[in-house]
Design a protein around this nucleic acid. Structure first.
Lengths: 234, 234
DNA sequence: GCGATGCGAGAGCACCGCTCTCGTTTAGAA
DNA sequence: TTCTAAACGAGAGCGGTGCTCTCGCATCGC
């Protein structure tokens, strides 16, 4: 099944050039950020006319969206890899640490790409449908751990009771897995998720400038604390 | 003391035009976002040559930085106002709810400005020294509640013990107030801070697209839960 | 082999940030 | 009050951007 669709020489060339554009643009993205990424610069880098790039991506935003999806997949792969690396699937604490640090390590290695994913949305709002499948991979890793933890009988820190409205608000997240999440897992799961990304964003975007000396130690501590709050530590 | 420095007609005109530029640019910022803000459009709006704007702001980034500071002050004012509105200063739970909802309400009313503050940094990195004094206002509101709570003898949920490195990492935040924060207040305070901003950012930037139906109810629940975790509820 | 389609290049449009120059206006010292 | 230096607004212009259109040429399916 060597290569997929392309049979003709033209189709092969098209696939290769598409790839080359994405690579060049991806390098620009990583180096100078999404705001400064320019179609003309990509064309220059590839030695072609800028108008030719538009044969492959209809607009700058479309190119950026493609990079967005690639970034989501890249991060998703890193997170899934870190999770899979824990051979003992019942070591939920280890898996939790694995995915949390995988996210932060990726974010620190690729700050511009992280900002593209979790910072302010750059284009109006990129087409959700295409991106969602890639974006959901990291979320799924969280849910998977929560799910396994609930099934294994772990219990997060006590939560306050929910009103009817609050319960209704969480219906979608609750029904994403089978068996459904209890209230406490829904609440603590969302909370921990927001705390992890909140901390990484605040750190990366410079809001902890003063306040925290050692980001590594602080994040490690936070992940420990969240694991304890989630009741993952046996 | 009517007006401050400006005595000459020229100085008055300068102050007024500076104000007009900021207003026009602020409107652009709020409506179409920081990326699309253009000096030329501001000049057109004010009926002047684009080059004249540069007499007042040396660059687009400088103009954006001024708007950044204004936004920080605007948010800071909203948060301080919400905190001050709680007449019973010992009602820490009420104050906590006040500032958390003030932040989110402001963010939802001014999504582009919130994104400018807490999304990906748009210019390289705007001069910290000018912005810090305004940026720190909302942080101070958090610290104030934490401080009062600790003095009043409230205790947050139990925390896991810190290693020496983790303790050292938190030295700056700990010594921001007198008396210094205990370990548990440092930890839970930072954690709650990150959770609040993480939740607002994830919501505003579309990462809860599926998962949560009713953002208002979810955030209200989160704030309740954090108050409980912080031990603010009597 | 031939028409249809895909493709690259170039010119061009409208916009951008920013700089420079050039008269004019204003402020402050002589 | 006069005169000089500074501030100012307008305009032209430079190099850059995203994007469109047209025009030849290569390639594909029939």
């Amino acid at each position: 099944m060597a290569t997929r669709a392309p049979r003709t020489a033209r189709a092969i060339a098209r696939a290769e050039l598409t790839r080359a554009i994405l690579d060049s643009a991806g390098q620009q993205l990583a180096e100078i950020g999404p705001a400064a990424l320019s179609v003309r610069a990509v064309a220059r880098d590839l030695g072609m006319a800028s108008s030719a790039v538009y044969r492959y991506f209809p607009s700058r935003d479309a190119l950026l969206t493609a990079l967005l999806i690639e970034a989501y997949d890249d991060l998703g792969e890193a997170v899934e890899g870190a999770d899979a690396a824990v051979t003992d699937r019942d070591d939920l604490d280890g898996r939790w640490h694995g995915i949390c640090h995988a996210i932060r390590n990726w974010a620190r290695a690729e700050p511009h790409r992280y900002a593209l994913l979790y910072g302010s949305p750059v284009p109006g709002y990129s087409a959700p449908d295409d991106t969602v499948t890639s974006a959901v991979r990291v979320t799924t890793a969280f849910l998977s751990i929560y799910h396994d933890a609930q099934v294994a009988g772990h219990h997060p820190a006590t939560t306050i009771p929910l009103t009817d409205a609050e319960q209704a608000a969480l219906v979608p997240i609750r029904s994403l897995v089978e068996p459904r999440f209890d209230d406490d897992w829904s609440i603590r799961g969302l909370q921990a998720w927001a705390t992890v990304f909140g901390t990484i964003s605040l750190e990366l975007f410079g809001h902890m400038y003063r306040g925290v000396l050692d980001y590594d130690a602080h994040f490690a501590q936070l992940v420990d604390q969240l694991a304890a709050d989630l009741g993952l530590g046996e």
